[in-house]
């Protein structure tokens, strides 16, 4: 029975997979590939080249390398991802995970719930909450006593804080799972040797959960790279171009300035960056799964 199902490649399996394949090709893989083609055309949102666009070869690419706003945007993307995702979210997530492990029960229940709620709120709600918190007349500006516009004065800093606030819960859950898997005997042995808690954490706990930390950083990076809504709703990429990360610049060029082709090309750059991180993630999770087996 098992045999005849497992032996030959069967049509039934193909039929069952067909909806998935059609959907993914038509609306996922297809659009990504199409974006690479559109990125090399002169297609516009309106006007004569909206319908009759054509391949323009390297034209957009030349424009890209000479576009100082693109390089600025790439730098801002790197700053946003590095500061908020790689450093901020991971460090805050780790601090929460460690503290929650050792705190009294009621406190960890309450704080855990707050942090997880912050994480699962829809992007719009998180952005709105942080907009209210940091704009003129908001809570932060009144705390300063004056009508200081915190969001406009330190835009990148505030959107990084917002991203940390909205993502640390995810990091905390991932790292908590990692910490729980650290055998207590090892840590106790370390303590017996007279090492301080900090020493034990740095030289025993961290190396043991290193794979979890790497996975966490890659996932949080991907989450932040895709985080268009948070910044777009809070600042729209401004003031000026102070928070104009690549996903927003791409959207602007394509759907505000109507240069669909150039916008698609900017999006392709994000896809390439995300691809590298996604590839690393697949590699890492495969290695750890094989090692676990």
């Amino acid at each position: 029975m098992e045999g005849d199902v497992a032996e030959k490649p069967d049509g039934v399996a193909f039929l069952l997979l067909l909806p998935t394949l059609i959907l993914l090709l038509a609306l996922f893989v297809g659009p990504v590939l199409y974006a690479f083609y559109l990125g090399l055309t002169n297609i516009a949102l309106m006007g004569p080249t909206a319908r009759h666009f054509h391949f323009t070869g390297m034209f957009n690419l030349h424009r890209l390398v000479r576009d100082s706003l693109f390089w600025e945007s790439l730098k801002l993307t790197a700053i946003f991802v590095a500061a908020s995702a790689i450093v901020g979210v991971t460090v805050v997530g780790m601090a929460l995970a460690v503290l929650i492990q050792h705190a009294v029960a009621w406190l960890r229940a309450v704080v855990g719930a707050i942090v997880v709620v912050a994480w699962m709120l829809p992007p719009l709600t998180a952005a709105l909450i942080w907009y209210a918190f940091s704009t003129t007349g908001g809570t932060l500006s009144l705390l300063g006593g004056s009508q200081l516009d915190v969001l406009n004065t330190f835009p990148m800093f505030v959107v990084c804080l917002a991203n940390i606030w909205a993502t640390a819960g995810f990091s905390m859950l991932v790292l908590s799972a990692g910490l729980r898997s650290v055998p207590t005997e090892v840590l106790e042995a370390g303590r017996m040797e007279g090492a301080s808690r900090w020493r034990v954490f740095c030289s025993l706990t961290l190396p043991i959960i290193q794979p979890t930390i790497v996975t966490n950083i890659l996932l949080v990076t991907l989450l932040s790279l895709a985080n268009f809504s948070l910044i777009y709703i809070m600042t729209g990429g401004g003031p000026g171009n102070a928070t104009n990360i690549l996903p927003i610049y791409s959207y602007q060029q394509a759907l505000v300035f109507g240069k669909l082709g150039y916008g698609a090309l900017l999006g392709d750059v994000v896809v390439i960056i995300a691809t590298i991180f996604a590839y690393l993630y697949v590699r890492v999770s495969r290695i750890t799964r094989m090692a676990a087996a």
Binding site: V5, P9, P247, A254, A274
Partner: peptide, 29 residues
């Protein structure tokens, strides 16, 4: 079922979960 390249397909699928959505907006639009 026996699906040719099933492992490759699963890895590709895991990989797709990492592609930022915002980027597909232009072609889908």
């Amino acid at each position: 079922r026996r699906v040719p390249l099933a492992d490759g397909l699963m890895v590709t699928i895991l990989f797709l979960t990492g592609i930022p959505l915002a980027i597909m907006i232009v072609p889908v639009f």
